[in-house]
């Protein structure tokens, strides 16, 4: 995350250049060598990145006995849907977790994004005299923090939020980094737009909502994706603030429990009347992992374009 934050935005409102004009240059041998190495390395590294996913997907379609005998492999061993059948035989838990996570992700991303954009905009307004103090007020929390234990005690004993989804939902709404990143993005919106709005007699909030916000789609996509990832992948706050107080745990925390405790594994397929020793526990864990991760990975190609261009806007210009 800090990568993007460090970005020095373009000072003028010049659109990011993603396509370079072709270089009319004669290529010598070293160019071809470099290009060869590049293809090879990139391909290797990409494979390296994909490999573990293949391993997990294969395992989820393998038979338990084959895994126990031969271990995990790159291709499914004795292909079967058995593990998925178990999960969807009593899908109450997993569906409940899905609903909780989807609601939190959608609502959290929408609200967080709006608040962050609003704040980022106000803090970037050159004529806003409090922008330095407020920026520092927010930035300071990255320099010094209360620490886990005092925060836990504060949130659970004084705010009395333990056992409530709000404890997780609220704490993930924003981070200082995202606000600062948004501030940098806003800078790429020409100030003339604000001024033209003022001339038309629009209020500050109206200028933001009607004029600035529509110009920030890549930024919103990028920060929105960060927020959505934060909500979707959340397990840590849940382990502290939800535990077993709620019936439906957020998806990744549910997965965390399934992976780490046999009890949770059995409970997740409760109702299917089986003893834990008869459960295909290894493949069941893998299938749960696939089910819990699938949507965010599937969603990625659709946002990739915005994401890359968003980061590029925010990224450092030499």
């Amino acid at each position: 995350m800090s990568h993007v934050v460090a970005a020095k935005p373009p000072r003028k409102a010049e659109p990011p250049r993603t396509v370079k004009p072709p270089r009319k240059v004669r290529l010598d041998r070293s160019d071809y060598v470099l290009r060869g190495i590049s293809y090879l390395t990139v391909a290797t590294f990409a494979t390296f990145c994909a490999l573990p996913f293949i391993l997990i997907i294969s395992a989820s379609f393998s038979s338990e006995s084959a895994i126990m005998r031969d271990g995990f492999g790159l291709l499914p061993r004795e292909f079967t849907f058995a593990a998925y059948e178990y999960i969807f035989r009593a899908p109450r838990q997993i569906i409940g977790s899905y609903v909780v996570t989807i609601v939190m992700t959608v609502a959290g991303t929408a609200i967080g994004l709006f608040v962050i954009a609003m704040t980022g905009y106000a803090l970037q307004r050159k004529d806003f005299p409090f922008r330095n103090s407020i920026s520092f007020f927010i930035y300071f929390t990255t320099l010094f923090s209360a620490g886990l234990a005092p925060t836990f005690i504060w949130v659970s004993r004084y705010l009395e939020l333990r056992g409530s989804y709000l404890a997780v939902f609220l704490q993930l709404l924003m981070t200082p980094w995202l606000i600062i990143l948004m501030k940098n993005f806003v800078r790429s919106v020409p100030y003339e737009i604000v001024e033209s709005g003022k001339i038309d007699g629009a209020g500050d909030f109206r200028i933001f909502l009607r004029l600035v916000l529509p110009m920030m789609k890549p930024a919103l996509a990028t920060i929105g994706l960060f927020l959505a990832l934060g909500y979707w992948n959340e397990w840590y706050l849940s382990s502290l603030y939800l535990g077993s107080t709620v019936e439906f745990k957020p998806l990744q925390y549910h997965l965390y429990n399934i992976i780490n405790t046999a009890n949770a594994l059995r409970n997740s397929v409760a109702g299917s009347n089986v003893s834990i020793t008869e459960l295909p526990s290894n493949t069941l864990k893998m299938a749960s992992a696939v089910v819990a991760t699938g949507p965010i990975v599937l969603a990625y190609p659709f946002v990739q374009r915005y994401f890359v261009s968003g980061i590029t806007v925010g990224a450092v210009k030499g």
Partner: peptide, 9 residues
């Protein structure tokens, strides 16, 4: 953690 949280429910 449940006890520490002082949950009055």
């Amino acid at each position: 953690t449940q006890l520490l949280s002082g949950d009055d429910n």
